[in-house]
Each structure stands twice: as C-alpha cells, then as structure tokens.
C-alpha cells in the first residue's frame, strides 16, 4: 500500500507533535545523567558524553533542600504517607455518598449533590486562611495528618462525583431486588454495589492519587520542614538561591517527583483518561 501525500503530511504532523510533547521529558532525562559542565556549556540537547548517576544520588539523599542536606527522600516518603490514607478515606466516603445519592434518593438530593460538587471547583485560596487556623485548632498544623485531612475534605467532592455518576448507570432494579430479598442498606452496598465497582474505584483512586501527589498549594501552605510533600521540596530545591545551580540535580529531582504519577499513567492510562473525562458532571 503506497501512502498518498496527504497521509505523509498527516504522519509528519503527528510525529512533529510527538517531538513537542516528548522534548521536555527528553531534556529532563538526558540532563539528569550528565555532569553539570556539559549543561552549562550549551549542550542541553546533546546526549551525555560522560554518563553519571551522581545527580540522581545527589537529589535523592544529599541535596540541600530548605535548611537540611537530606536530599528529597524524606519528602518523597512524606508524600506517600499523605497520599495513601487521603485517597483511601476519600474513596470510601465517595462510594458511600454516590450510593446514597443514586439508590436511596430523597427530596433535595440533587441540590445537596450540586452543593458538594461546587467544592470541586472553588479556588482553594478562598479556604487557605480559615483552614490554616482550623488545623491549628485541631492540633494538626504542619503535620502529615493535617494534609491528609485537607485532602480528604476537598477530595470528597470528586470521589462523590465519580461514584454518583457510575452508580447512576447501575441498574436500580438490582438494589430493589436485593431489598425484596431481605438485604439491608449496608449489605446491598457491600454485596451488590461494591463487587461491581472495580472500574470506577480504579478511576477514582488514580484521579485522587494524581491530584494529591501533585498538589502544591496545600503542601506549601500547611506543612513545615518535617511534613513537606515532594512537590514543595522540589520547588525549594530548584528555587534555592545559594551556591551554583545544579541543573542536573534539579532534573533528577523533577523526574523523581513525576515518577509515581507517570508510572500510574503508563500502567493504567485508560482509567486515567476516563477520570479526566468525567469532568463533565453528568458523566
């Protein structure tokens, strides 16, 4: 089969855009494994002449982040300590909310859902001041627990949206049949709904994981040096003005911060895209 000129142009365009999207990743990767001198001499686009893993080691365990020369490792762990409980709690609550809002409807439930949904969209600047004070009041200031709490509070809106839209398409007759069979509220949820919620649970977990891992605003506002998440630490590393800028270390650190979410994206891209698409409220 010979390609017509139009097809050749089409593939050329597609390839060009592939280059555009991959270029920054390429820059980060190659420059994270070359010595600083190769970068500063204008060789950012070149493959390394002298390959080295030193920048990675440096970024992981030696670099000066904020006040201490700990590398990014403790902050990487902080992020996991924050993400795992936050995602778990928000997902469970979202599933229960979605179940109630679709299968046990009552007067005014759509309005309540609309009010919850608005929480997905508010600019978080509007809650920064009172949240800072509330965390102090709850003795959670500057702790990972405080960040977990904040992310749960503002993650519920999303998880509820996902599960509500998914359960809306789940046949209500099944729930009614189970009721006639004698199953109660929680039994129906546990035995009928949850075993059929695999796909949406994956979508929800991936979405929350990506969002919470990538969050910067809450991390920057509500954490101290002991509880900062990865994004905040990476920014501190890159913005710190002391000494020579170690670009290769910055790039290595940036890839480290990107790895968990990139990994999720590559392993479960299908679900990731579905999560993005659910931006449409009705789904």
């Amino acid at each position: 089969m010979t390609l017509r000129p139009a097809r050749i142009l089409l593939y050329a365009l597609l390839a060009l855009f592939c280059v555009y999207y991959l270029l920054p990743l390429y820059v980060m990767l190659v420059n994270s494994v070359k010595p600083l001198s190769e970068i500063t001499s204008g060789g950012m686009m070149n493959l390394p002449q002298a390959w080295t893993l030193a920048p990675w080691k440096n970024a992981w365990s030696e670099a000066q982040v904020g006040v201490a020369a700990t590398g990014l490792k403790p902050y990487f762990l902080n992020s996991f300590a924050m993400v795992i409980p936050a995602v778990t709690i928000a997902t469970v609550l979202g599933a229960l909310n979605g179940y109630v809002l679709t299968k046990w409807r009552f007067r005014g439930d759509t309005i309540l859902f609309g009010l919850m949904l608005f929480g997905c969209f508010i600019p978080f600047q509007i809650v920064l001041i009172p949240m800072a004070r509330s965390l102090g009041f709850l003795n959670l200031s500057g702790t990972v627990g405080g960040l977990v709490f904040v992310h749960v509070v503002y993650g519920i809106s999303f998880s509820t949206l996902y599960f509500r839209n998914y359960y809306a398409a789940f046949p209500t007759e099944l729930v009614r049949a189970a009721e006639i069979d004698g199953a109660g509220f929680f039994t129906i949820f546990w035995r009928i709904l949850l075993p059929n919620s695999g796909p949406i649970a994956v979508v929800c977990v991936i979405w929350l994981f990506t969002n919470i891992w990538n969050d910067f605003l809450f991390g920057a506002s509500f954490s101290d040096f002991s509880s900062q998440p990865m994004t905040v630490a990476l920014n501190n590393l890159v913005q710190s003005s002391t000494g020579e800028k170690e670009y290769n270390v910055h790039f290595a650190g940036a890839i480290m911060a990107a790895l968990p979410t990139l990994f999720v994206y590559i392993v479960a891209g299908r679900f990731f895209v579905r999560g993005l698409m659910s931006g449409s409220v009705k789904g």
């Binding site: 046949p171 007759e173 099944l174 009614r176 049949a177 189970a178 006639i180 069979d181 004698g182 199953a183 039994t187 035995r191 009928i192 075993p195 059929n196």
Partner: peptide, 25 residues
Amino acid sequence: AMVFQSYALYPNMTVRGNISFSMEM
C-alpha cells in the same frame, strides 16, 4: 417475590448465589 423487567440478577454472583441470596438474607 418479584421478577423484574431487566431480571435484576446480581452480576458478581453465580446463578446459585443469585438464587440463594434471599434465603441467606
């Protein structure tokens, strides 16, 4: 007992599980 238009069979359970569910409850 009720038979639904869509049959409302629980997709995650076997036929045996479906028939037995009510008695279990």
